[in-house]
Nucleic acid binder design. Structure first.
Lengths: 120, 120
DNA sequence: ATTATCCACAACCATATGGTTGTGGATAAT
DNA sequence: ATTATCCACAACCATATGGTTGTGGATAAT
């Protein structure tokens, strides 16, 4: 089990079934059975997925009798958004940046070639 | 190996070593050795991490002689940002939404209790 | 020509993941 | 009181992950 906060969040989101569940929960809370209904896998498998989501704090659970309600915790997704947004400047205004970088690589190579003082 | 695009991206980002490498690459491209230097794990382990990152299109590689340069592909992170941003309205303007949802759950339970026509 | 360096491939290991079936405790319905 | 339903726990399995050591092909340095 991953302990790091962001790591467990990303891990939880790396499965399409779990992302689908997250998406379903944007339409309001649901019981385990309701969440399992659209899928062809077993209820137990869904319970496992929910455990991962809860572990990453992507959902909150509230038991009531036999039923176990799940609700989205958007705060966890917000953290993902904020992490990704930290890289915004790298995709903005330079869609061709990759080419630029490759050029930079070649420049570096040439620098290395002309540099004869390899005295480290 | 995961095939789904977003799934492999999230999986690649679920490891702190790989996120650290991604972060390093914001300061420009680097060789495998340079990327491996800050870590205490083996060069081979880093090569594996780089393979996952490349597989998820988070980095691009450019071989030159013995060296293998890696450069960040911000487009992949942008996709993550866009995915997360789709949930923006769920965390904006209602930090107490979770409480609201739990209330909603209880309401639903009561509705169920008063509903006597269980004729499905 | 010889030696050193960069890097990935292979084989291996322990643990995690994503699924299964079997089961049973609580609770709700009859 | 009996039966049905909701859900999770356990044990199991195949595969993926994150690491290791051993190695060797290319290339660069001497």
């Amino acid at each position: 089990m991953v302990v790091d906060n962001l790591s467990s969040t990303f891990a939880a989101l790396s499965d399409p079934t779990r992302r689908s569940i997250v998406d379903r929960l944007t339409r309001g809370p649901a019981t385990v059975n309701e969440l399992a209904a659209p899928f062809s896998i077993s209820q137990q498998a869904i319970s496992k997925h929910l455990a991962y989501l809860a572990n990453a704090h992507l959902i909150e659970r509230q038991r009531d009798g036999r039923q176990n309600f799940c609700a989205l915790n958007p705060g966890a997704i917000r953290e993902v958004a904020e992490w990704a947004d930290g890289y915004r400047r790298f995709w903005e205004k330079s869609f061709q940046r990759l080419d630029v970088l490759l050029e930079e690589m070649k420049t570096r190579k040439q620098r290395k070639r002309t540099k004869k003082e390899r005295h480290r």
